[in-house]
């Protein structure tokens, strides 16, 4: 399907507010791959990611009026909705039940070979994996698992100030990798 039309973010937002199916179609075609990688990198489970991606697009459709361009790009907003929806799922009961089953199966597989090598290559994880361990852990907990800085401080038993400093320096490192 060749896509000849190309809209700027503000044009797209205006079209979405008119709620036409064509606007939805354009949004989906141009953003689903990126958003799916975000969801998948957090959930690391295709079935769940499929459900959450649907949920994300429904949410975006319903909440487009809440998007404020003064606070950032449409893309950033979409990624944050995707990340939040994924983390909500991560915290939900049904996820935890499924995870237990999956971990049982994984133990069987890991003994035989690779399982995590595949999910480690998804989206932002690919880049985060280049960071040193101390930075990786903070981004894992904050970005991929959705813990607040306060929660991380309690979880790792290190002062909040240290968490803040370390998270920032992790992000500065990450930025250097993104630029490459």
């Amino acid at each position: 399907m060749p896509e000849t039309l190309s809209y700027t973010e503000s044009e797209l937002v205006a079209l979405l507010k008119q709620r036409t199916q064509a606007a939805f179609s354009y949004l989906y075609d141009n953003y689903s791959g990126a958003l799916y990688s975000v969801v998948l990198s957090i959930l690391q489970d295709k079935e769940l990611a499929n459900d959450v991606l649907q949920e994300v697009f429904v949410k975006v459709w319903r909440q487009i009026d809440q998007y404020d361009p003064g606070k950032g790009r449409l893309f950033t907003w979409l990624v944050n909705i995707s990340r939040n929806a994924s983390i909500d799922t991560l915290r939900s009961k049904s996820y935890n039940a499924q995870k237990q089953i999956r971990e049982l199966t994984e133990t069987v597989y890991t003994a035989a070979g690779s399982i995590n090598t595949e999910t480690d290559k998804i989206g932002l994880r690919k880049i985060v994996n280049l960071l040193k361990e101390e930075h990786k852990i903070l981004i894992e907990l904050a970005y991929f698992q959705g813990y607040t800085q306060d929660e991380i401080s309690k979880l790792l038993n290190i002062p909040l100030g240290t968490v803040k400093t370390r998270l920032r320096s992790a992000l500065i490192q990450l930025k250097d990798f993104l630029k490459k």
Binding site: D29, A34, Y36, S37, N50, T76, K126, L178
Partner: peptide
């Protein structure tokens, strides 16, 4: 934000095709 978008886009993963029509059906 621009750099972030480029990175995410460069690493995108195409979702299964049924998802688009499933959402369209819903909406």
């Amino acid at each position: 934000e621009q750099i972030f978008e480029e990175t995410i886009r460069a690493n995108q993963v195409q979702p299964p095709v049924f998802i688009k029509s499933a959402v369209e059906k819903q909406l």
